[in-house]
Every structure is written in structure tokens, then in C-alpha cells.
Design a protein around this nucleic acid. Structure first.
Lengths: 235, 235
DNA sequence: CGTTGAGTTGATGGAACTCAAATAGCGTGG
DNA sequence: CCACGCTATTTGAGTTCCATCAACTCAACG
């Protein structure tokens, strides 16, 4: 997020699959440039909606995409923020139609990977298939992490965990992890963490009062990572 | 749960993979009987522990296995109950070592599927690989469902959702979904739902007061499925 | 028949929600 | 560039729901 700098392929979660650094056959190389389509998603626009046929999966190059679960009655059940270098809609691949809606929180650039072609590639290359299974399993772990964050922790711990999580992921994609701009608003964060925007706001204020972070609106500055981690862990 | 009747292969989540009903090559048939080991797990015994090398995944034939997340500091973070016909530890396949511990809630019978052999099979058979990806993705959806249950609903709704969920899954494995015996105790349910055992108890009592269920200790009888579903949905 | 552990019920306090008002950001047009 | 209006965010006061602590019931078992 923050600056619109787009990450390069070497930071993409698909790197090991797309590029032949560690792969052998030429068929594996097909993904590189040929089948993957790049596109821009304006802020507020949907990348896909629940009910859409699942034909592709996506990788975020820059920006931020929020993934909403429409299966529950409630509107706007936010189950994931996808940050640069991360993949989207992997969990939908099992079914014919998507059960989530993905909306750009800020203007974003993404890679679209057609599932059919990728599937074919998996059958041809065991290595790609294995790598892909690993990626899908990893996506499942993320949901699990969020679960324990929400179920077992109270508000201040959740917000701390959220900040540390975002910080780490931004760093992984080559951005600064200490000082960044949150793409999403307080309501989105609250929905994600199972809180109210007022509570999120109060937590930010409290963390700032303790000198662990600095906040002004969407700008966040992490001053004491270790102390913040202590708050996060102090169940 | 309830009676120790074990489900047959035709209800197993791996059915489509194990059996040649819809598969072609003889290599796909290898799994059937030859490599899969069946075993008994006594109540309270661990099937595997976090840190163990991931060499297999598991299918429940009878009984109930609880899966604990040890990564968080807190003890006993319960992320899943595996019921007959369901699979276990799929999310660990990506990593070398398990990050969860699985313990039998009641005496259980399971199938142990060696991952290495299965992996080999996936490379040989595209159909098996695709089916397997579907299964892994489905496992991810379950975690997601629990997430929204816990994050967006209050106690009575969570307990209603839990009962409906268990009911449906028991039915899927051929057991009665109306009247059953919960294998797990109140503490396990509470941990799973992000509540306290006292609260779970109160919710059971309240649902019984409304004549939607009958409870006495572990015995549950669902009287009004539709009304129970209304409680569950009334966010 | 006493002990033990699980489950239920009651009383109380605290964390987060709700409603409401004040303030700060941000884009737009003058 | 500044003033305006709209929205997002912060802050405050009162309420609700669930956790906590504690007492009690009940069934299983030696």
C-alpha cells in the first residue's frame, strides 16, 4: 500500500512456479508472460463477486484487496486483506462458483492467472502441483491464524496483532514495515477483527498513549515493536 | 460419535480417490487397502503432536478427534473437531512439521494415509491431484466458517450454529442428526466457540427452555431444527 | 456412602457495544 | 489557495453481554 510502487515478480508468491529458476520443463515456463494477464482495479471496484464462475485466481502487485464472505447473512463479513505479493481466491478453486466477493480498498494492480491453464500445468508438472498444494495449505493457515486472534484475544491485543501482522507482510513485500499507511478504513479493520470502529479507534489511541505507536488517521508508525508484541501476546 | 459404528469407505472423504468407480489407471487403485493403515486411538491419546514430522494425513472412521493449535501461547486452542468421514491435518501438508496436536475425544478408529505415497500418486494421476486440491480447499472453507461463526455472532447463536453444524455432519456420515451424543465436554465446546463452559451451559439451558432442543449432559435432541436455525441466523 | 468430576445455576464486575456529539481529514469548487 | 461540505475518526456516557467466582446438583464409582 502507501506508495503505488508495484512489486516485482521475484516477490510474488508464484515466483517459484512462474519462473524457471528451479523448474525444468519448458511447459512450466508457459505461465511466464504468456497466460498471465495484468490489470488495474480502481478503488471500490470488485475483482469478482460471489456467485461468479471461478476461472482464475489472482496475485496482488500493488494496492489492497478486501475479501468479503457473502455466505453469512451479514453484510461485509471481511475475511481477508490481500497485500502486495499475496494471492487471492485460492479457497474458491474447489468449487465452481466463488463464495466470496473481492473489492479493491485502494487502486490496485493485479495479475490474473487462468485456473484452467494452471490446472493443466499442474497435471504436466508434479513440481508445480506440489508447490501449489503448499500455497493453498498456507492460505488455510492464514484463516486459522485470524481465528485464534479473534477468538482468544481481547480488543487491544487484536489491534496490536493486526498491526504487527500488516507490518510483517508489508516488510515481506519490500515495503517499510515500521511506518506505513493503512489502505483500509476503521470500519473495515473493525469488521475484520470482530470489533466496532469506535473500539478500534480507542485501541489505536491507547497504544499511542503508551508510546508504542503513532497514529494519525490512516498513517501508522510503529515505535516499539517488541512492546507491541508483548501487548499482543499478553492474553 | 454415539455408538461405535464405523463408517464404511463409501462415506469417506477420500472415496473418490481410493476407489476406481470414477478413476482409471491401476496406480490410482494402489491406495485401496495396500498403503492405508487402520488403527485405534484410545480416548485422550494423541494421534500426533505439534512438532511431529508430517508423514501422513488421517481420516476418521469412528469417534471424534479434536485438533489443538499450539502455536498460540494459550493452552488448548481448539480449532477443529473431526467427525466420522472427515479428514485431519490437511493444512499441515505444506510444512515439514505439524503445527497442531490431535487428541481423541473418545475412542476412535482412523485410517492413516502416508503422504509420500499419496504425493507420488498425485503426480501420476491428474484426477487424484485435482480431487485432492478440492479437499484441501474445502478444509480451508471449514476454518473460515468457524471464523465467521465466532466473530460475528453472540453466544446463543454460536451454540445454535454449533449444534446445527454437528447435526448436519453426523447426518452426512449416516448417523442420526436429530438425536445424538456429544463426544466432547463443555470445556471443549467452549474453547471451540470462544466462550466459557458456564456460558455454553446457560445457552443449552436457554435453548431447552425455548423447547428447541432437549439436553441432558452429553445427550442432545434437536426438536425444532427450523427454529434453531432462526436463532442461529438472527444476528 | 463418601468422593470425585462434570455440569448447572446464581451474583457481580468489566470489557466492548450503542447511541450521540464533537472534531479532524479530504476532495471540490470558487 | 482557501472556504465549504461531506465523510471518517475520535471522544464521551450509558447499557448489555459475557466472564468470573462461587455454590450447588447429579451421576459414576470404589
Amino acid at each position: 500500500m502507501h506508495e503505488a510502487k508495484r512489486i516485482g515478480c521475484e516477490l510474488c508468491g508464484l515466483w517459484k512456479i512462474c519462473f524457471p529458476g528451479r523448474v525444468a520443463s519448458s511447459s512450466e515456463r508457459r505461465l511466464n508472460g504468456l497466460l498471465i494477464r495484468r490489470m488495474r482495479v480502481p478503488r471500490g471496484k470488485a475483482l469478482y463477486r460471489s456467485g461468479d464462475k471461478v476461472e482464475s485466481f489472482y496475485m496482488i502487485r500493488s494496492g489492497c484487496i478486501k475479501e468479503l464472505d457473502d455466505s453469512t447473512g451479514r453484510q461485509g463479513a471481511l475475511i481477508n486483506f490481500a497485500l502486495p505479493g499475496e494471492m487471492l481466491s485460492l479457497q474458491s478453486l474447489g468449487s465452481a462458483f466463488s463464495n466470496t466477493t473481492s473489492i479493491a480498498v485502494e487502486p490496485s494492480f493485479i495479475c490474473v492467472v487462468p485456473w484452467s491453464a494452471f490446472n493443466q500445468l499442474c497435471t504436466e508438472s508434479p513440481r508445480v502441483a506440489a508447490e501449489f498444494i503448499r500455497l493453498i495449505a498456507k492460505a488455510g493457515t492464514a484463516a486459522r491464524d485470524l481465528l485464534t486472534l479473534i477468538r482468544d484475544k481481547e480488543a487491544l491485543e487484536r489491534v496490536s496483532g493486526f498491526l504487527l501482522n500488516v507490518s510483517g507482510r508489508l516488510q515481506a513485500s519490500g515495503s517499510r514495515g515500521r511506518e506505513f499507511r493503512l489502505a483500509m478504513n476503521r470500519d473495515d479493520i473493525a469488521n475484520y477483527l470482530g470489533l466496532r470502529s469506535e473500539t478500534v479507534s480507542r485501541c489505536f489511541t491507547e497504544l499511542a498513549r503508551r508510546q508504542l505507536i503513532k497514529v494519525q488517521a490512516k498513517r501508522v508508525n510503529i515505535l516499539q515493536t517488541n512492546e507491541l508484541r508483548k501487548v499482543f501476546l499478553s492474553a
